[in-house]
Design a protein around this nucleic acid. Sequence first.
DNA 1: GGTGAAAAACATAGGGT
DNA 2: ACCCTATGTTTTTCACC
Lengths: 151, 151
Amino acid sequence: MLEDIDARIANELAADGRCSYTDLAERVGLSVSAVHQRVRRLEQRGVIRGYAARIGGEEIGLPLTAFVSLTPIDPAAADDYPSRIAHLRQVEACYSVAGVESYILKVRVPTPSALEALLAQIRAAANVSTRTTVVLSTPFEDRPPLVASQA
Amino acid sequence: MLEDIDARIANELAADGRCSYTDLAERVGLSVSAVHQRVRRLEQRGVIRGYAARIGGEEIGLPLTAFVSLTPIDPAAADDYPSRIAHLRQVEACYSVAGVESYILKVRVPTPSALEALLAQIRAAANVSTRTTVVLSTPFEDRPPLVASQA
DNA sequence: GGTGAAAAACATAGGGT
DNA sequence: ACCCTATGTTTTTCACC
């Protein structure tokens, strides 16, 4: 599926998303145009889904992170919770999970009272009960996965 | 703290980490060099912590994501759990949380049995008990936070 | 798949307002 | 803080292997 040089390219870009093709080419030992072509293919195949700047939460006034677990109140309701919640931009991620609860959300807000308001919006928008776990600190986050070759 | 144009630059780069300075300059209505200077300052201030390619888990043979909650077995033990776990590369994130449990980890593995092995490693390395919630699907993830100005 | 070369676009530094 | 200009680098395409 994923060949060795492609894996190395993906790892490099996961660690440094703005790395130039020229640098990449040197590191993996190919010409610039070959690397360029491979990167485009990786993007098409969905191995690389996009590029993002990692933003420091505290520096932009969103120091409070929390995980919010959702339990549907009406078990017979339609299963479109994600779409009911996606418009809330403070919700950074939404996972459907196997467990007592149905979804886990990751949220980022400026203050405890903003969290309170957001929880009310979530409950209202999706007809769910919530259980919230506040993040105290983040020793590490967003570590790039080890892309291994499997050709 | 964070001025309007800086906020827009941060938002653009959060959404498209490989956007050129030329494009950025057009979008925010400044000269290329002014934008370049601002980006450097945002990086120095920690607003922008780095750049990363977003990698598709299924496409690289890591289709199984889970959240693992940790409870210390010896409540008197030293509080260096993150450093005991950081060497396990399947652990993508580590959060210290307020709740029944002490930490939440996000992990990505190829198979259920790799998850089993990883959990054993986590328990052995940190002397903790674990509770695992398997992710079934990910409606969305890594949405860029809304960087708001607060000058 | 890969290379190499040429044109266009871009990044970067310096001096001026 | 910003703009402009000049220079070197990078991206991107294309013809060829």
